[in-house]
Design a protein around this nucleic acid. Structure first.
Ligand code: MN
Ligand code: MN
Ligand code: ZN
Ligand code: ZN
Lengths: 143, 143
DNA sequence: GTTGCTTTTGAAAATCACTTTCATTTATTG
DNA sequence: CAATAAATGAAAGTGATTTTCAAAAGCAAC
């Protein structure tokens, strides 16, 4: 899993004629070792702990590269911070977000996806991507 | 329709012990006379045309009040600008957004909504609200 | 209507999340 | 080893939104 992503990113770097740098390696390792849906700030702080002089801009730039290479996906949950999650080629899921504790659950629902296609078709639209987020209270916070 | 919203906002103002001001009236009229999904900047410019000294901050503050009172809903289509749309108590719809021309189509799909509830239930979640946006190419832009 | 107390307003400054700039450092290629 | 092109980090810049604060309304209660 992690090795596959590392290889995918190395390939991306090579094929684009970019350079392999110590920073990119460190950021990739840290990202892959992190929980899903990490914010840039969170990742940056985690990185700074072991690499006190890594630049803020470098983290931003590198995460964009991860997304471009397909190993990460950028997500916005509307709290003003961009988050990145691990992505895998051809995989897709949507999110349940607890508005109390911030817990995030991922889910896939084939039927919903099909219905989305139908809605789009009925309006002559060709879907490129979509965003489905369910906000509410998780089982623990319901107490 | 418009009268109902005006009354709803007046009631909100009264019940909250807020004041009725010329600015709030003007902004409400302009908002109600505008197309759906208007950005704050757009509304501000429209307002300035007839009220050259209305403040930027006042428009921001007032739109938040509209949302709080239930007559408007804040939406983010990921272009970095907050938009507001007319909202009606008990009504809900989702969006199809053209990534080429910006066209927005509203739709409702009962089946999708029911399936969302099922997904939430299966994870012990209680949904408070949700966001479903389908991004793609509209029929005109497909040419 | 005047007074007195609050809330609201507008202009400007501040904030926040990012993005750009640019001089310096680093990776890669011959 | 150069030579060269890309990457980095610190700091400045952006753009949307928010806050600050002194002046200007609202809204009672006289
Ligand atoms: Mn996810
Ligand atoms: Mn709408
Ligand atoms: Zn929770
Ligand atoms: Zn279009």
């Amino acid at each position: 899993m992690k090795q596959a992503k590392k290889k995918a990113f190395r390939d991306f770097i090579t094929q684009k004629g970019l350079k392999s740098t110590r920073q990119r390696d460190v950021i990739l390792d840290c990202f892959l070792a992190s929980a899903r849906h990490i914010s840039i700030e969170e990742l940056y702080l985690k990185l700074r702990a072991k690499n006190p002089n890594i630049g803020y801009a470098t983290v931003y730039r590198t995460l964009k590269l991860f997304a471009e290479s397909g190993i990460a996906r950028e997500i916005q949950f509307g709290d003003g911070q961009t988050r990145y999650e691990h992505a895998t080629e051809g995989e897709h899921h949507d999110h349940l977000v607890c508005t109390r504790c911030g817990k995030i659950i991922e889910f896939e629902n084939e039927t919903i996806e099909k219905l989305q296609e139908e809605v789009a078709k009925s309006h002559g639209f060709l879907i490129e991507n979509h965003k489905l987020e369910l906000y509410g209270v998780c089982s623990l916070c319901k107490k």
